[in-house]
Design a protein around this nucleic acid. Structure first.
Length: 490
RNA sequence: GGCGCGUUCGUCUAGUGGUCAAGGACAUUGCCCUCUCAAGGCAAAGAUCACGGGUUCAAAUCCCGUACGCGCUACCA
């Protein structure tokens, strides 16, 4: 097994969206496959008919595609070990269940929900250390079973946990973990609706799909002994196990819907980059130890190692995600960001307007160090797309004095004389004006920024002017002179 | 309750017996840069390494116990 190509799988149940914890699990599986030249398989665990969600599988695949975790085998994609939807493999599970029954490793159970309920209450009342099925139906004779089956009685198939030595898990992240056999319940393998439970289905599929490493969340650690027993009863070779630490809410409980966003698509629609999300989630439970925190997906593919995954859970800390988002934006060229900005524009009130690529790229270069999200190109610097709608009161009060309109007139005149719009020309013209007026450059810089952008913050003022362009700048200065009334007290 | 897992700055983490009176990052604060805001640079603050016992010349690192947290305990995954 060790020498085979590693085959790992991401096996979510289709709840309607991809959970960020699921994303992390999928990512680690994917990276493990990439680093070991293995295969990454998507399998859908849809054995709970009560939880069927229309379109969930498509949605899951779309989201996985968006973040770029392409799988080698899976539903729609296909592969040699399909079908990859458990609901299409019912006969397979039934076959193995029957084999287990024949071998005495599993048995029919006809107990009603009521009896089970009573049993639990009874055990609770007696303060028994734990609640377990009492193997009542194991005492049924062959004839009795035949009769009940023929009569069409409802039944489930249960695992027959037999006494024996401890069940030992050798986990890649947790090391050796032991369980006493008598703490393991006779788990239901096939439900009364004929569908398998997770426990049977995942073992059968992992074996049939030749999965070599089971990398999944820690919530599965407790049921792993049941799985190991199943492998043993079926005479199958065990895969390696790696149980990943949980992603946590700020109160340290398992990351859940109630305490914020858990769906990857929520983060997508909020404007997070897939690069940032992947980078962030990779660091929740894993690190190289060399202080590097910024990773591209390609870098992760060569640096990841399952041995360096931690044991303890990690709180999903949005501040760091935001920082990584801005880092990943800074890491991109204007050319790369261009389509994103165009997309933001087409979804905004500016969707009718046309800007040249060259113009937009200048906007990007001047603003990309100042944004955390793409949409901030519009919200933080709308002045690149429209004239100021109003002028910031605070800045006005501080920067627009009684003599400012005159200064602005002089400035506009000197701008007018410029041959062309450029950072250097604007700077030269402004400094010359300041000299002529015998005032500090700041007396012009701040007001002109206000006149042109309407606010007091943004890129360097000469960059700003150069991007907006001479004619428009002069126009905006004139508008400001007319529109702004000097606040009292200035 | 039972079983299992975990516990280093607010958060993510480095650390696998001596170089750790614990390093980095995010967030916070201050300074520098500067036409503003960012970015960047520098700095500060922030962890008696959950607690208590051992082992050892030496422990955040090994062992035991306790506490706390979390997970599982379903004909959910």
């Amino acid at each position: 097994m060790i020498n085979e190509t590693p085959r790992v799988r991401f096996a979510p149940s289709p709840t309607g969206y991809l959970h960020v914890g699921g994303l992390r699990t999928a990512l680690y599986n994917y990276l493990f496959a990439k680093i070991n030249n293995g295969k990454f398989i998507l399998r859908i665990e849809d054995t709970d008919r009560n939880r069927f969600v229309e379109g969930a599988v498509e949605n899951l695949i779309d989201t996985l595609n968006w973040v770029g975790l392409e799988f080698d085998e899976g539903p729609k994609t296909g592969g040699d070990f399909g079908p990859y939807l458990q609901s299409e493999r019912l006969d397979i599970y039934k076959n193995y269940a029957n084999q287990l029954i024949t071998d005495g490793k599993a048995y029919h159970c006809f107990c009603s929900q009521e009896r089970l309920q009573n049993l639990r209450e009874e055990q609770q009342k007696q303060k028994l250390p734990q609640m377990k099925y009492d193997k009542h139906c194991l005492n049924l004779s062959k004839e009795e079973i035949r009769q009940k089956l023929d009569a069409g009685e409802n039944y489930v198939v249960r695992l027959n946990v037999q006494p024996g030595i401890k069940v030992i898990i050798s986990d890649i992240v947790r090391g050796r973990v032991e369980f006493d056999r008598d703490t393991i319940d006779d788990q239901v393998l096939i439900k009364s609706d004929g569908y398998p439970t997770y426990h049977l289905a995942n073992v059968v599929d992992d074996h049939l799909m030749k999965i070599t490493h089971v990398i999944r969340g820690e919530e599965w650690l407790s049921s792993t002994p049941k799985h190991i027993l199943l492998y043993q009863y079926l005479n199958w070779e065990l895969p390696e196990f790696a149980h990943l630490p949980l992603l946590l809410n700020p109160d340290r409980s398992k990351l859940s819907k109630r305490q914020g966003d858990v769906a990857v698509e929520d983060y997508q629609s909020k404007g997070y980059l897939k690069e940032a999300l992947i980078n962030f989630v990779a660091l929740l439970g894993w690190s190289t130890g060399d202080n590097k925190e910024f990773y591209t997906i390609e870098e992760l593919k060569t640096n990841f190692s399952i041995e360096r995954v931690h044991k303890s859970g990690a709180i999903f800390n949005i501040d760091k995600l935001n920082w990584l988002n801005s880092e990943h934006i800074k890491n991109k060229t204007a050319e790369e960001i261009l389509p994103e900005l165009k997309n933001e524009l087409s979804n905004s009130k500016f969707n009718e307007m046309r800007f040249s690529d060259d113009y937009l790229k200048q906007v990007i270069d001047s603003m990309k160090e100042r944004v955390i999200f793409y949409n901030e190109f519009l919200t933080k610097s709308p002045y690149f797309f429209e004239r100021p709608q109003q002028y910031d009161e605070e800045v006005l009060k501080k920067r627009w004095k009684e003599d400012t309109p005159d200064h602005m007139k002089n400035l506009a005149e000197n701008f007018e004389k410029m041959e062309e719009s450029s950072h250097d020309n604007f700077e030269a013209a402004l400094r010359k004006t300041a000299e002529e007026l015998e005032i500090g450059a700041g007396k012009l810089i701040h007001p002109v920024r206000l006149a042109v952008s309407g606010i007091g913050v943004g890129p360097g003022v000469f960059d700003l002017l150069a991007i907006i362009g001479k004619d428009e700048v002069i126009e905006r200065i004139n508008i400001a002179i007319n529109k702004i009334t000097i606040p009292s007290g200035n």
